[in-house]
Design a protein around this nucleic acid. Structure first.
Lengths: 209, 209
DNA sequence: TCCTTTACTGTCCTTCAGTACAATAGGGAG
DNA sequence: CTCCCTATTGTACTGAAGGACAGTAAAGGA
């Protein structure tokens, strides 16, 4: 079992070797021939054909972890859809890399704390809209100070939903949505929904780093 | 670190103890008081309030694995959405249970071989439908299609500024700001400033990668 | 020169967001 | 059994947002 790092020039970053002493670096062209079913292949999104590589390698039963310089949930989704079992920041600490290696070699999936919930929340909302109260679960610290219902409203608004839409979604009147919003604005010290969106999305970004 | 199994009657199955000798069994009522951040809580879907328990316990930072007698991807999604980090069959082999324990205690997610692809595919489709125009059409060039002034207005609005503030900032009237905004909405195919903010911030993420 | 684009401004109108007054009901703490 | 918190809904009001009509002025290419 070995760790194969695919980079643009086949070079290895020091922290990767810190975490995984038996790591080897290759370029995109060499990748397929150098990896076996037991291995873990790490690939950065700076590699032009990382999508194709991820698909091809994961199809052979090899665990693939995609590393990005600027992780975001859309790219994470894409990576997972292509067959990757992990998605993380290129500059993740050695301890984190070790952890990821451990997880993916044991049939686990590693997508980072916040990404998971965001990714899944999206799908659940689409697949079964009726569970809307439960959409509010973990979270952003900001949301922690809110009540269950307030959180549900806040998250809906953060998606860009209008009061009327939120009302329909939570099966309450528009007036109630306004009531919750007033409470939310007060608690989070924001003046309107615009600032709320900005606050929530900036907090979400912080969690990625 | 210990393994807490929540079952209807608080009893433990033999294979659970085979896999995890330090396992303890509790009933739903005792669950919260008996689990600490380092623990792994295993809960079967035969427990009436497994959804609420999963939500509550995972919120405290405890890893929760949901076990079902008849696993299916819909329930898996629900479990993950509620905050569970694992989802498997109640009668999983001891080796599998060990593996799951290892994965979830290292910040991984375990949803089983077959479920993984289906679950993720579902979520990918759901998310991409919602954001398909952004990804395909405009992409990174969102702001590039705008004129100088429109860009200035768009950026100010993306910061959460009101029309009046933008007007003062650019030394123009509020009416002109509205005119620019109308053009922006049309060009970028968004309905209002809320969606504009969401669009710009999502594109900003992509530009970084 | 003519036409197009861009920037800027005006008034009128509709809809939405948010607040200011409320009120009612249930659950939990003391 | 109160007091407090939460969830819910009501009416009325102010102000902002955005569209529907406009219009003028400058710049640049055909």
């Amino acid at each position: 079992m070995k760790h194969v790092f695919i980079t643009r020039d086949g070079s290895l970053k020091a922290r990767w070797q810190d975490a995984l002493p038996d790591a080897i670096g290759v370029t995109s062209g060499q990748a397929i021939t150098r990896s076996e079913p037991e291995d873990v292949v790490w690939i950065t999104t700076t590699v032009d054909d990382w999508r194709e590589q991820t698909t091809a390698i994961s199809r052979q039963g090899v665990s693939v972890v995609v590393m990005s310089y600027a992780p975001n949930d859309r790219e994470a989704l894409l990576a997972l859809e292509l067959g990757a079992r992990g998605y993380t920041h290129t500059f993740s600490a050695p301890e984190v890399l070790k952890q990821i290696a451990l997880v993916v070699t044991h049939q686990g999936v590693w997508v980072g704390q916040s990404l998971l919930s965001r990714v899944l929340t999206g799908s659940v909302q689409a697949l079964q809209q009726r569970t809307s109260d439960e959409i509010t679960r973990q979270g952003l610290q900001t949301l922690a100070t809110l009540t269950e219902r307030e959180r549900a409203v806040a998250l809906a608004v953060a998606r860009g939903a209008a009061n009327k839409e939120v009302a329909r979604e939570l099966t309450i009147t528009e007036r109630t949505v306004k009531a919750h919003l007033s409470a939310i604005f007060k608690k989070l010290a924001v003046r309107d929904r615009l600032q709320l969106i900005l606050k929530l999305s900036s907090d979400a970004e912080k969690r990625l780093s």
